[in-house]
Design a protein around this nucleic acid. Structure first.
Length: 366
DNA sequence: GAGTCGTGGTA
DNA sequence: TTACCAAGACT
């Protein structure tokens, strides 16, 4: 078996991504704001320190959480905004959940944000405000599994851990032509074995970043650029021209379509009535329009319960919003409103998180 | 093991 | 237009 770490690390020095905002921060008095200097790439944590740059474990942790099931280009803007609002773990711990979700809104998978917030409070209470350095302590934190824990400790402290994210799965399953799809436990077990086999005990941080960079930039799902790949010589998929078989597509299922009515109440000040969603379920912890089943009777009952004299003012065009596992048809309905009690929020200065389609609906109101 | 949990880009 | 999915974790 040909180990990949040596050619991969060499490739990384020249072609890896070295200027992502969470990778290195200038240790200026201002702090927090990552500046992309002209300094050349770094090949080790030590060299990064030598360049006057330092790894911020909080930034690494935050980025790893944001990057779960989410692409780099999407994350960058959210990351920069987030650390501006919450510059330290302590600041994050002291913030309200609504304040955290407000900055996370639009990024999706909101349990990540709720868990991140919980983590910050645990870290302040139990770890003196600093990210713990023991693997067992990190993986015990909510929302952090084996791969994310390994990535955080590898990149932050150059500790010797393997990771197995989507990039690594794709690279290794091609390199070794691993059969089966990633959902199967047998396949996953084999991939973890290979991941640990290839992970070097030196320059671990760079290796972790390198294999993710390879997967993200060359060994992509579609049209991999094998001509530029440092691992092409011994890649089984390349040799047998079976790159397209990895990842092995999951057996497909038909997504159900659900329907819901969303009621729009505006008071005389133009504020909109919003209610906080339960922690469990879709959009947990975000604030949304009042919902009910999308049929005439239920809608009529719902609006009269809120206000006896309420009437439907206008039915807006239905929006189709697709999730990973179902489609949602949203019928927004503007309702007359005589109330002006609590629960109404100014659209202009929202300090809570809104689901993406709800934000779109409200943006269209004026 | 299979479902749940978001969103925007892309083929 | 539709389907798929990108640096997963949890139940």
């Amino acid at each position: 078996m040909h180990p990949i770490s040596k050619p991969l690390l060499k490739w990384f020095e020249q072609f890896g991504r070295h200027h992502l905002p969470w990778q290195a921060t200038n240790s200026s008095p201002l702090g927090g704001q990552a500046t992309h200097s002209d300094l050349s790439y770094s090949t080790s944590n030590l060299q990064q320190f030598a360049e006057g740059k330092t790894i911020n474990p909080y930034h690494v942790w935050l980025s790893e959480i944001m990057l779960q099931q989410t692409q780099v280009t999407t994350v960058i803007g959210y990351f920069n905004n987030f650390i501006q609002h919450f510059p330290t773990i302590k600041a994050l711990a002291n913030a309200s959940e609504d304040a955290v979700l407000a900055q996370w809104a639009g990024l999706g998978y909101y349990a990540r944000a709720r868990n991140l917030h919980k983590c910050a409070q645990i870290i302040v209470e139990q770890h003196q405000g600093a990210l713990p350095k023991k693997f067992e302590q990190v993986i015990d934190l909510p929302g952090i599994g084996e791969s994310t824990a390994g990535a955080i400790l590898s990149i932050s402290f150059n500790q010797n851990h393997a990771i197995l994210d989507g990039n690594v799965k794709r690279v290794l399953s091609r390199y070794h032509q691993v059969k089966g799809h990633y959902g199967q436990s047998e396949t996953l077990k084999e991939l973890w074995r290979l991941a640990k086999y290839h992970t070097p005990n030196k320059r671990n941080a760079n290796y972790t970043q390198a294999i993710m960079d390879l997967g993200a930039t060359l060994c992509t799902r579609n049209n991999p650029e094998c001509d530029r790949c440092p691992l092409a010589q011994h890649c089984q998929a390349k040799q047998h021209n079976t790159q397209g078989n990895h990842p092995n597509p999951k057996p497909r299922k038909n997504k159900p379509t659900r329907s819901v009515a969303m009621l729009i109440y505006q008071n005389t000040a133009g504020e909109v009535y919003l209610e906080k969603r339960p922690k469990k379920g879709i959009w947990g912890g975000l604030w949304s329009l009042m919902e009910c089943e999308n049929d005439e009777k239920t809608i009529d009952q719902a609006i009269k319960k809120f206000d006896k004299n309420a009437k439907i003012e206008q039915k807006l065009s239905t929006i189709k919003h697709s999730f990973t596992h179902y489609h949602l048809m949203i019928s927004p309905i503007m309702v007359t409103c005589s109330k002006n009690t609590e629960g109404f929020r100014s659209i202009a200065e929202l300090k809570v998180g809104l689901p993406a389609p709800v934000k779109k609906i409200i943006a269209q109101l004026d």
